[in-house]
Design a protein around this nucleic acid. Structure first.
Lengths: 214, 214
DNA sequence: CCGATTCATTGATGCCCGTCAACGAGATGC
DNA sequence: GCATCTCGTTGACGGGCATCAATGAATCGG
């Protein structure tokens, strides 16, 4: 019954689903970080969204993927071929319900990105990204006023493409947040969020602090 | 069985679902135009997405709505209370499958917006919006080189918020597209797309012309 | 028929930020 | 240990665009 599922490891840079191709496999992210990447004809690439552990990738039922699924870090996956997966959903209403709920969450996440990208200046978008990362980290647990340590697994270029800006502007925004005492940059891939409230303020309140239950 | 469904008309400006409230009703758009609107604390409002005829609004299963559903024009709807709708989905796998496919389409649309908003200059975003409207209009039918007439149901302010820009910049972008001979502006709410290929070009190829089957 | 309101457009101005360029730091390989 | 490569940061510059302000056009109400 569960024999269709297969555990696999992929290295950084590995392409799981090519752009404009039928997805052959469906899968969950167990560990690591994947990205949905759209390559423009002029060579520029744009990151549409991230896939973190517990997220589902690949598309069932509705045709080709408009973007590439790519591993941003070494990653561990749980995958299965598309057709058996679709049959599973058809046979088991429980599985289909779980899948539906997952897709609804993805929809919320996508709309949240629309919000972030649509409004405001670069600093606000950076702050919003950090807020989302913090939310992932604390996961509902009330964070005290203690600093929140973040491991950024993304290169600056990738973050820039994700936020629709350039690495240079991104760097300046980080520095500004640091000057304002909102974050502390330890290394390019490790920073502490010192004040969640001010960070929310800096995000232009696009993402409400209520999300944290504070 | 179908008694739970109710046909209703709402006037422009009517709010169907308030921000951060449980959706009491689920429904389809039959005619008119709805929008998902997020109101920022500073009073500015941001349009996350549009709902056109055949689209589904309101959320089943997963909690509160993060945005308001508002009628941008007089609209005609087919709605039913949320709870019976959820029971319907639970009882009927066929209905749940249809709902799932609809949500998957919404997800694609949302990701497309992420693309549009994330890349490029204002003119490109305007061109992308026009492309999407054209795609709605021709609906798979191959459009000849004849001009495509578009009825824009949105005010300039709303389009601006949708594209993450200001009405002034929007106006200038429209004018530029007209100067380039790509569109003709008859009235603020009615324009012709004269050259689909050049429009695609102006969109920065973010949305490929392949979508039209051309 | 005329004022009031709403909305689209246009112009002027200042700033944000995308681009180009150079530099520094860390990692890798021979 | 040095050359090389990748990546992040910083500086300078110019253009795009948000903002403010004014005008014009259209709709509405009395």
């Amino acid at each position: 019954m569960l024999a269709i599922w297969e555990r696999e490891k992929v290295p950084v840079g590995h392409i799981l689903i090519e752009e404009n191709a039928e997805a052959e496999r469906i899968g969950f992210v167990l560990d690591g970080l994947l990205a949905m990447v759209k390559t423009l004809p002029d060579g520029r690439r744009h990151i549409i969204g991230l896939l973190t552990p517990a997220d589902l990738f690949g598309r069932a039922f509705n045709g080709k993927s408009g973007y590439r699924i790519e591993a941003l870090t070494d990653a561990e996956l749980l995958t299965c071929p598309r057709t058996p997966f679709e049959e599973l959903l058809t046979r088991s209403p429980e599985a289909e319900r779980l899948f539906l709920l997952n897709v609804l969450d993805e929809l919320d996440a996508a709309r949240e990105w629309v919000m972030v990208l649509g409004s405001g200046k670069v600093v606000q978008r950076v702050a919003s990204l950090l807020l989302i990362l913090c939310r992932h980290k604390v996961q509902g647990a009330i964070a005290p006023r203690a600093p929140i340590n973040l491991h950024i697994q993304l290169k600056r270029v990738d973050i820039a493409h994700l936020l629709g800006t350039s690495p240079e502007s991104l760097s300046r925004s980080f520095k500004q947040l640091e000057r304002d005492g909102i974050i502390a940059i330890n290394t390019p891939y490790n920073m502490d969020v010192l004040d969640l409230c001010e960070l929310t303020e800096a995000a232009g309140n696009a993402l409400l602090i209520e999300d944290f239950g504070l």
